[in-house]
């Protein structure tokens, strides 16, 4: 039936001529090759037009905002206070120096957060009755540190722990500040991991068990990898927050970027040093944000292609 129908439409001369202005002769091999030839990005249909429109609208918007702000009465003094080029240049080396400490704290904290977060999630998900007390502790921990503002945890540990005067405990503020960041981020990250693991469809478990995989093997090879993959974008958002949280450690003293910016600002009565610190944090965040976008786009594409699994 279907083939007959097909035949009528394409090969009856009258019908074909009536239906379209294209001639019904097939394209030659060279013409097809031309069709399939990969085009550079800008040569694709509509790209140039979109680019021009985007550019124009950006110029109009930014230009408009600049005129509005630039014409306010106080702009000159605000510009002097926050965006003074000489001050920025002068503050730059100190702030950058402090920023190295931020990066160091982040680099030490993030792996710990991932490890502890995953461990905490595993404890929380388990159903073994022997583990009940540990599970209860894990839940209490998560509730507590997801709710407590990071700033308070940093101050309590940073001022409180050295105050205990326990000899074998380190009393460096960098140590306690980093520890506080780890403690708060771990609570969030554990919940992220848990959401990922629980999002894996139970039929995946059935399939793995039916092949003879043990409970542990099923988790290790089938559930966990899929669960982690599902939450990579929110995990990266967590990286970004943790990186910014390291700025809060300034409250207990270490000479990191914001602290150095603050010192400069206090000595020179100018806030441009803070803007420098902000720019550094932003510069570090942007690549992570674009990377997350990329991952999300890719997984959306996979969804569209539609695996039933």
């Amino acid at each position: 039936m279907r083939f007959g129908f097909h035949f009528v439409i394409t090969h009856t001369p009258g019908a074909a001529g009536y239906m379209s202005t294209h001639s019904s002769t097939p394209l030659t091999a060279t013409q097809v090759a031309e069709l399939l030839r990969p085009k550079p990005f800008w040569a694709q249909r509509g790209v140039i037009r979109s680019l021009i429109i985007a550019l124009l609208s950006t110029v109009v918007l930014i230009g408009g905002m600049a005129t509005l702000i630039g014409n306010t009465q106080g702009w000159a003094s605000v510009q002097q206070a926050f965006f003074s080029a000489p001050d920025m240049r002068e503050a730059w080396p100190k702030v950058v120096d402090g920023f190295k400490l931020n990066i160091k704290m982040f680099m030490i904290a993030e792996p710990l957060v991932l490890i502890f977060g995953l461990m905490l999630a595993l404890v929380r998900i388990g159903t073994n009755p022997v583990m009940f007390p540990i599970r209860a502790l894990a839940i209490a921990y998560i509730d507590l540190f997801r709710g407590a503002p990071a700033l308070l945890v940093i101050m309590m540990l940073g001022f409180g722990m050295p105050g205990l005067r326990i000899e074998w405990l380190p009393n460096s503020p960098v140590f306690w500040g980093t520890a506080a960041c780890v403690i708060t981020s771990t609570a969030y990250t554990a919940e992220t991991f848990r959401a990922g693991i629980e999002s894996v469809h139970p039929s995946q478990r059935s399939a793995a068990r039916s092949l003879g995989l043990s409970n542990f093997q099923t988790f290790r090879y089938v559930v966990l990898p899929q669960g982690i993959k599902a939450v990579i974008p929110p995990l990266i958002s967590g990286f970004v927050s943790l990186q910014k949280e390291t700025a809060l450690v300034s409250t207990i003293g270490p000479m990191e970027a914001t602290r150095n910016a603050q010192i400069y600002s206090a000595l020179n009565f100018n806030y441009s040093s803070y803007v420098v610190a902000a720019l550094l944090f932003i510069a570090l965040t942007i690549p992570l944000a674009r990377f997350t976008d990329f991952l999300l786009r890719r997984s959306a594409k996979r969804m569209q292609m539609g695996g039933l699994t």
Partner: peptide
């Protein structure tokens, strides 16, 4: 005992070869 399901349930994070060899190697 082998079992096959209505919704296939292949492991989406593994290629075909790994889907097939996972159980023989690990079990």
């Amino acid at each position: 005992i082998g079992m096959v399901f209505q919704s296939y349930n292949l492991f989406p994070h593994m290629n075909v070869l790994r889907n097939i060899t996972l159980a023989p190697t690990s079990v």
